[in-house]
Amino acid sequence: MKRGAAFYAQLAFTLLVCAFLIAPVILSILAGVTVNYQSGIQSGFTLRWVFAVWDGYRDTIFLSIGISLACLAGTLILGVPAAYALAKRQNAFSRALEELLVMPVAVPGLATALALIVTYGGAGGFRTSWSFILVGHILFTLPFMVRSVLAVLSAIDLKTLEEGAASLGASFWQRFFHIVLPNCRGGILAGSLMVVTLSMGEFNMTWLLHTPLTKTLPVGLADAYASLRLEIGSAYTLVFFLMIVPLLVALQWLGQARQAKFVAEDE
């Protein structure tokens, strides 16, 4: 196909957008491993800043991993059964509930966090433990798990599959564990990756919910950006990238694998 000026104009535009998004990422990675960013990369490369971050902020990294895994467990336990129930029951009540569940995503995290603080701030042990942050993260990520599973469940003919299983003698719970769960694996996996990624990066709520003893990675990042030299902020950002990139790659791969599968089914 011959490509005209319009093609190249659009390509140039797209490349520009790409540069806008990627340039600062590269700059920050460079800054994180440069001896002195002000004088440029001629000053040489070093892992000094990365080690400094590791020494100073190690705890935030572990806390973030812990919270995101706990958040995943929470959304699995709460979200997957709920998604199944919502998929099976299409009535006014279930639609209202579906609508409500999405609210913590629509309502700014700041408002949700304030609401949690004014309600449970007095519960000393709860307020100061990391589970307070966890509650906020589950609220925020639950809709993503529910929607991801729900999307898969509404794409398959769940009703007939269940009737088929029932005709062979499967009880409600046997159907749920043998037929429903295995057939929404894809949705659960995609939802899980999304939940972990979002929990790892959540800041809007966490900034208000955290205490000096429960700092998560993004909270530590904000700290570092505000008070430390650019190189340390960059090195810290680099660490954050290293943690979420595998998750993002997995998410993208999952999306492509699913697309490819749909194509195969069409043929």
Partner: peptide, 28 residues
């Protein structure tokens, strides 16, 4: 590759976005 790069910052939290802006338009 372009699609991958354009969707890469999908899960950056706001603080990191702020830092990206500083890398582009900040004092350094």
């Amino acid at each position: 590759a372009l699609v991958a790069m354009l969707t890469f910052p999908l899960a950056f939290p706001g603080v990191v976005i702020g830092f990206m802006v500083i890398m582009l338009a900040g004092r350094q």
